[in-house]
Amino acid sequence: MKRKHRRLMVVLTSLGLLGAAAALVLTAVEDSLVFFYTPSDLAERGTPPDTLFRLGGLVEEGSVRKEGSTTHFRVTDLNQVIPASYTGVLPDLFREGQGVVAEGTLNADGSFIAREVLAKHDETYMPKEVAEALRESGQWRDGATQQ
């Protein structure tokens, strides 16, 4: 009985220590675990021009403008806004009010030149009819309830 108890204590203590160590490591490297920065993050920390990073947020309503194969849009987190542009084919789910993660660099004038654009979708799943019914009754709008 005594040895069983000792083994139980050893296992529990090591697991506790391991969990604490993992938590400390993860908090320490939190910055590099972030997949993208929001416009507010950028405003706070300031990123030098020509460094590659990912910008994430919502495509601002009414901001998408096409010029040949180049698309201009604005990325917002409903607090700060950053103008962005991308040349190439956009993913199907890219639309106004939708989440987006773009990789690229910041121009000298503060606009974002994207090399790659990924669509980020939220955790809501529903049939088309339900979405339309909700939209008609004004209870829900694309993008408005997200993030």
């Binding site: 993992a22 993860l26 997949f35 993208f36 994430g56």
Partner: peptide
């Protein structure tokens, strides 16, 4: 870490539904 990764950090993967 797997379970809460989508809540703790910005990820491309969406949070739990």
């Amino acid at each position: 870490i797997i379970k809460f990764s989508v809540d703790w950090w910005n990820t491309l993967h969406q949070p739990a539904s």
